[in-house]
Amino acid sequence: MDALKSAGRALIRSPSLAKQSWGGGGRHRKLPENWTDTRETLLEGMLFSLKYLGMTLVEQPKGEELSAAAIKRIVATAKASGKKLQKVTLKVSPRGIILTDNLTNQLIENVSIYRISYCTADKMHDKVFAYIAQSQHNQSLECHAFLCTKRKMAQAVTLTVAQAFKVAFEFWQVSKEEKEKRDKASQEGGDVLGARQDCTPPLKSLVATGNLLDLEETAKAPLSTVSANTTNMDEVPRPQALSGSSVVWELDDGLDEAFSRLAQSRTNPQVLDTGLTAQDMHYAQCLSPVDWDKPDSSGTEQDDLFSF
Rank of each mutant, 00 (worst) to 15 (best):
V207A: 15
G8P: 13
D126L: 00
T89L: 14
T209Y: 09
K84H: 15
I108G: 01
V236D: 10
V88N: 01
F48Q: 00
L242M: 13
M281H: 06
N102M: 12
C148G: 13
N138C: 11
W172Q: 02
V92C: 10
R9T: 14
P237Y: 10
D191F: 01
A241N: 06
K127C: 00
E170A: 05
Q136F: 14
A154Y: 00
G82H: 02
S6L: 15
S175M: 02
R261S: 10
S298M: 13
C199R: 13
P32V: 14
Q136W: 05
K166Y: 09
N105C: 05
R182P: 15
D198K: 06
L99W: 11
D293C: 10
E216M: 05
I12N: 08
P295F: 07
L47G: 01
V226N: 10
A221L: 02
G63W: 01
L255A: 03
L85W: 00
R27S: 15
E216I: 04
W35K: 14
L193N: 04
P32K: 14
W35M: 04
S288T: 07
A156G: 05
D296C: 05
G25P: 12
E109I: 08
S67T: 11
L147Y: 00
L242I: 05
V174F: 03
V75Q: 00
W35A: 09
C119S: 11
A7G: 15
V248C: 10
C286R: 07
I71L: 00
V161K: 00
D273I: 08
T41K: 06
G254K: 03
T77E: 12
Q302P: 12
D122N: 00
I132A: 08
S265F: 02
L213T: 12
G244R: 11
L213W: 03
D101M: 15
I97V: 15
M153I: 10
P94H: 02
D256S: 02
F306H: 01
E142R: 15
W35Q: 07
K123L: 15
P222A: 11
A18M: 04
Q240A: 12
T200C: 03
L305N: 09
I116H: 01
R73M: 15
K123W: 11
K62R: 03
T41C: 14
V161G: 00
P222V: 07
L99P: 07
V247P: 14
R73H: 10
L42Q: 12
R238K: 13
H125R: 00
R196F: 02
A76R: 13
G24S: 11
K152R: 13
R182W: 09
A162M: 06
K152P: 06
A3G: 10
S205A: 11
I108F: 15
Y283H: 11
K5N: 07
L11K: 08
Y114P: 03
I74A: 04
F306M: 11
F146S: 00
A145E: 00
S246G: 13
E188N: 03
V271P: 06
V247Q: 11
K127L: 01
L103W: 11
D191Q: 06
L223M: 11
P15G: 13
S265E: 13
I132W: 14
T230P: 05
P202I: 02
G82F: 13
K220A: 13
P222W: 13
I97T: 01
A228G: 06
K87I: 14
E250I: 08
V157L: 14
K51D: 03
Q139R: 12
E33D: 13
G244I: 06
S243T: 13
G63Q: 01
T160F: 09
K72W: 15
I71N: 00
V248L: 09
D304T: 08
L50I: 15
V75F: 00
K181Y: 14
R266A: 11
K127Y: 00
R151K: 05
Q86Y: 13
L50G: 06
L262G: 03
S298I: 09
E250W: 04
L99M: 12
E170M: 11
L242Q: 08
V92R: 00
F146L: 04
V271E: 08
P32M: 08
C143K: 01
Q173Y: 08
T300P: 10
P295V: 07
P32F: 09
A185E: 14
S16N: 12
T231C: 03
S67R: 00
K150T: 15
A154K: 00
A76G: 13
T38A: 12
Q240E: 11
P202C: 01
A130Y: 00
D2Y: 14
I132N: 02
R73A: 12
A69G: 14
L17M: 13
F165S: 02
L305I: 13
L99D: 00
V111L: 09
K5G: 11
R115V: 01
G275Y: 03
N110Q: 14
C199K: 09
K294F: 12
S297R: 10
R151W: 02
S245I: 11
I12W: 12
G25L: 15
D214W: 06
Q163D: 15
